[in-house]
Design a protein around this nucleic acid. Structure first.
Lengths: 305, 305
DNA sequence: GCGATGTATAGTTAATCTCTATCGCAGACA
DNA sequence: TGTCTGCGATAGAGATTAACTATACATCGC
């Protein structure tokens, strides 16, 4: 029993004539004859009474034809589903973003994605890189926004933008007089850092290797966020390093804080999209990338690959 | 897209492993691989993300698999319907009976059929032979009970029983003294006859050709029935001829009427079943035949063919 | 009976399905 | 870093099935 057989069956039930039904199915009359006979043999019931005068459907035949129509209808739905699902911009996209990007990127990203792909709702999760990577590999996420380096088997990445780091200090801080700050000086100040697991913490420590070892002045704030740290800096608890997208939007709006760039070579992080090599909705990824690049993130430089 | 493809699809969605899914489907892994690929090409969507680690179903894939399961379920119903419909004794049987048999046969027939085939309800129609024949050929009836001769293209008949004719007269009638009545004498009496269209009318007239021609004493009662005529005979309106099944049950119960057989050669009618050559439920017909022969019809002789 | 109509069958060709064998890729492990 | 292993994809051969054309067969109407 194949779907083709069922189509023949339904056609014959409608036409009550092998020749006409065959024509409607674009096959020859013997083809249809044989198919119906095969079906009857397989089901071990007589579906039609054939006579010279006409073709009559049996009671059981009528019931089976009705069921066959249902099957064909449901089968047709598969094609409809496929057509609807063919558009990579239709259907929800599961997006993951690291904690140190989300709050600054998402407010810009979301309306842009919604405009570019109205029928692609975003299901967003913020988390640490490691957690995002896990979810991505498991299939719980489709695309993630992370900082490079990011190497995972089966995962491809595409750099989107570079983002310079800034020094954030309370207004009136001694360094305020300097246009730019040398990275090495971070070791001299009470540096507020995110907790372990945040890749940004590691990147900051990489900028200032002195800070890492021994008993520096830095304080690690577990369970904190860049925003919390920023508030703490404003109260004079210390200084910190922020990515430009988190640091730059505020001056003019916050008289308690001062932002300074680093001396060259300016430290920065490279933000990238990552997805499974096998992920088929590349169009959706393109939309995300464009939306990110279209977002007014302070100080970032697009990476043209 | 075939039902087999859908089975492969569903198996793979369950197993998430081409090899295992193939095994479950009793095919080789390449067979399943190719089938899935073919489906994906045909639907122009990616149903699964394959990687070395595992097989992930895409969102659209999951929706299509759900639909495929629905299709397979409905397709399975076809087999169930066929199995249920395979029994010729299941499902209603449309039975036609001529007017001059119905009232005497059906009260016996129905309980017997119900006993022999409890899940075969009878849909019964009483009518003239011509009308029954028409319905039978159209498919509105499955089997009819008629008197022979009955020749119709595409229709086969099977004689069931012979039924002798009786003369019915009012009690105290002059012929009451005779043990048997000669057919020719019918022309001498006021003979009450059914209206045109009743085959029994013609059969009676055949018994007594004298009655047919000219201005006899017979009276045709259009729109009447054997029962009506019997009542009329009881009131002395005339005599009549009845089939034995209609005439014999009453003596002892009706002191107003007298029944006499004919002289040899005793006239009779041959009752038969008729159905379309193509009608597939021969088992149902056998049940009807047996039920008729098992019915206590007065004076009838089974026809063993 | 004979022709017309309509379905079934025969025989052939073509498509398709399925198989075995093998490739190629990616992750795991030493 | 090289090798091993598991797994899906691919290639080519063989078998099955589906379709066609031609024709046989059955039935009914004339």
């Amino acid at each position: 029993m194949t779907l083709t057989d069922l189509r023949y069956l339904v056609a014959l039930a409608r036409e009550r004539h092998f020749g006409h039904a065959a024509e409607r199915c674009n096959v020859s009359q013997p083809t249809l004859s044989v198919a119906i006979k095969k079906l009857e043999d397989e089901l071990a019931v007589t579906l039609f009474e054939r006579s010279a005068a006409d073709v009559k459907i049996t009671d059981i035949g009528a019931r089976i034809v009705a069921q066959a129509e249902k099957v064909l209808l449901e089968a047709g739905q598969i094609k409809e589903l496929a057509t609807a699902g063919r558009d990579p911009l239709s259907g929800p996209l599961k997006l993951g973003v690291i904690y140190t990007i989300g709050p600054y990127l998402l407010p810009h990203l979301i309306p842009r994605v919604h405009e570019a792909a109205p029928s692609m709702p975003l299901l967003i999760q913020e988390n640490y890189t490691a957690r995002l990577a896990e979810s991505l590999k498991r299939g719980d996420l489709d695309v993630i926004v992370v900082a490079l380096p990011f190497e995972e088997p089966g995962i491809v990445t595409q750099a989107v933008y570079d983002e310079p780091f800034r020094v954030l200090m309370p207004a009136g801080h001694a360094w305020e007089k300097d246009e730019r700050i040398a990275a090495a000086r971070l070791a001299e100040a009470p540096l507020l850092l995110l907790g372990a697991g945040n890749c940004f913490r590691d990147q900051v420590l990489e900028v200032c290797p002195m800070c890492r070892s021994g008993e520096g002045l830095q304080r690690t704030l577990e369970g904190s966020s860049l925003e919390t740290i920023r508030h703490m800096v404003a109260t004079g608890a210390g200084i910190t390093v922020l990515p430009s997208s988190a640091a730059d939007p505020l001056p003019g709006g916050n008289s308690l804080l001062t932002v300074r760039p680093f001396e060259a070579p300016e430290p920065f992080r490279r933000i990238a999209l990552a997805w499974r090599v096998t992920y088929p909705r590349s169009g959706a990824i393109d939309v995300i990338r464009s939306a990110i690049l279209g977002s007014p993130l302070q100080g970032v430089r697009p990476v043209t690959r």
